[in-house]
Structures are given as structure tokens and as C-alpha cells.
Computed example of a mutant assay.
Amino acid sequence: MLSRRLLCIVTVACSPAALAQPVEDADGRLTDPAGRVLYTFDRDSAGASACKDECAVQWPPFSAQADTSAKPAFPLLRRDDGRLQWAHHGKPLYYFVGDVKPGQASGDGLGGTWHVARTRPAATPDGGPDYSPKGY
């Protein structure tokens, strides 16, 4: 099990997609260019990651190359180990090792502190109308 996790981390950390900037999908979720969903962590402070050691094994940082140019909505943060990490409005971005295919978001809501990174709120779960009838 541990070797599978390490393989996933090495694959994520070494893939070209892990070195490109975040992308917004049709639902407003942030992904890497390969479609792997990105997450934020409630315990992070703006501009700093609180996810280290074992946490970073389960939630690998979405890394950036040293020569990458940041964008206003996607700044780069320097982690304690010196690596650069993408952020969305100052919140560091991560992968979840439990997601094994593009678009999968099985880490959303875990521990009440991990959330899919979004550029806009999620659509209503029931797909109900987004209007109020006149007089109600």
C-alpha cells in the first residue's frame, strides 16, 4: 500500500501536468491540465501550507517549476522544503492520492477540512431552478 502511494506521489510530482498552471473545468472546479481535481485545505493560511510530512503524502502539493510565471488568481507559494506550489487566491492547491482518474473528487469534504478548489460555487445538487416565482 505504501509503495502504491509513493508511486502515485512520484507520478504526480514528476508528470508534466503537475508543473503546469491550474485549469478551470466546465463546473468551475480547478484541475491540472490532465483533468486531475485540485483541493484546498481549511487549515492553511493565505500564502502558507499547513500540510506537511504525512499530510503531504496523502495530499501532494500541486507543484510548479522554478521558472513558472504566476498569474494574479494563481500565485506561487514557496513551501518549507523550497519547492513552489500553485495557489488559488493565496490558498495552496493539492492533489488527493485517493483520486485515481481525471475528474474524480473522492477527497471532497474529507475530515471536514478538504474541499475541491473552485472558481465559483457548485451548482445546486438537485438541479433545481435558479429563480424565484413572482410573489414567493
Rank of each mutant, 00 (worst) to 15 (best):
A48F: 07
V100L: 09
L6N: 15
L7P: 00
A48I: 09
P60V: 09
A105C: 11
Q104W: 01
P133M: 01
L110K: 07
K71I: 06
V10M: 04
G109K: 06
G82M: 04
T113F: 02
D81A: 10
H88I: 03
S69R: 15
A56T: 15
R78F: 10
A73N: 04
T31H: 00
L2I: 10
T68C: 05
D32P: 09
F96V: 15
E54A: 13
R79C: 12
K91G: 12
E54I: 07
R29L: 02
A66G: 06
A66W: 08
F74M: 01
L19F: 02
A105V: 00
L110V: 12
S15W: 12
D42G: 05
G90M: 14
L84C: 03
P75I: 15
A70H: 10
A34Q: 11
L30C: 02
D53G: 00
A64P: 07
S132T: 03
D44E: 10
G128H: 13
S45A: 03
G28I: 03
R29V: 08
T68P: 01
A46C: 06
D53I: 06
T119D: 05
R36Y: 15
A66H: 01
A73W: 09
K91M: 14
K134R: 11
D108I: 10
G82S: 13
A50N: 06
L93M: 02
R36D: 14
Y94W: 12
P129A: 11
R118S: 09
A56E: 14
P60D: 11
S49R: 03
A123P: 01
P129Y: 05
S106T: 14
P33Y: 09
D126W: 15
R83F: 08
D53W: 08
Y94M: 11
Y131R: 03
L30G: 00
P60C: 06
M1F: 13
R78L: 12
T11F: 13
W59F: 04
S3T: 15
S106H: 07
C51G: 06
D99W: 14
D25L: 05
D27Q: 12
G107V: 09
D99L: 03
D81E: 07
A56F: 12
S45Q: 06
R79A: 13
D42E: 03
H89M: 13
A18T: 05
L38R: 02
K101D: 08
D67Y: 02
P33M: 02
H88F: 10
P60W: 09
C14V: 07
D130V: 08
Y136D: 01
R83D: 15
S63M: 13
A48T: 08
A66Q: 08
A17W: 12
D53V: 07
Q65C: 01
V116S: 03
G98M: 04
R29F: 12
R120E: 04
